[in-house]
Design a protein around this nucleic acid. Structure first.
Length: 196
DNA sequence: ACCGGGATGTTCT
DNA sequence: GAACATCCCGGTG
């Protein structure tokens, strides 16, 4: 008993969408994970965003329709996945930073050979992608139609009433903004935000 | 537990 | 040529 999220859900500012994505379920053909940590990126107003200096071949999907996946490759080896927010023409996205494994744990464990315990399977943006098999081919896919078997679903678990909030991770610019949210008390995060 | 450094290649200046 | 929305390992305390 879970329902796929539709276009309307994603078509709002990243700062609104981000905390609403907490406790939703990311589903791929490999398995599924409950989203427990996210970061907002606000396009042209945000020096930390890949879209800050306008569209490029890499970032054009961020300027397109909401509910699509923006996937980027970094540090020569890692994939990371964002959900596109806002309406067409305005760049906004929410980085999926961590999840709690739900189904397909055996497959995820095979993919993440370095993970020593279940909480290490999806506890980071690149770990999450590796565990669930999200790579460059998935860039631009439409989550609202479950393209390539990937979607985000609501299984009836509401977002936390008081999410933990803190600064974003790993940025040289815009790192002072407290645009990261997490489900409080969950160990499967990249690192716990300080306070809220 | 905490910290420092290396891996590795795409993207944009 | 520099930067990079990261991860992993090995050192030390």
């Amino acid at each position: 008993m879970s329902k796929r999220l539709g276009r309307r859900f994603f078509a709002r500012p990243a700062l609104e969408l981000a905390p609403e994505l907490l406790n939703k379920v990311l589903v791929t053909p490999i398995g599924s994970a409950r989203i427990v940590e996210v970061e907002a990126y606000c396009g042209s107003e945000d020096p930390g965003s890949h879209a800050y200096r306008g569209p490029t071949p890499r970032t054009e999907v961020m300027f397109g329709r909401p509910g699509h996946l923006y996937v980027y490759f970094t540090y020569g080896m890692h994939w990371c996945a964002n959900v596109v927010a806002e309406r067409s023409g305005t760049a906004g996205a929410v980085l999926l930073r961590a999840g709690t494994p739900l189904t397909g744990v055996d497959e995820m464990t095979e993919r993440r050979t370095r993970a020593r315990r279940p909480r290490d399977l999806c506890s980071g943006p690149a770990k999450l992608c590796q565990a669930l098999g999200i790579e460059g081919d998935h860039g631009g896919l439409d989550l609202t139609t479950a393209e390539m078997g990937v979607s985000i679903r609501d299984d009836g678990t509401p977002p936390p009433a008081r999410p933990a909030q803190g600064v974003r991770v790993g940025l040289s610019k815009g790192g002072d903004l407290r645009w990261r949210w997490a489900v409080p008390g969950i160990p499967d995060v990249s690192r716990p935000p300080v306070g809220n």
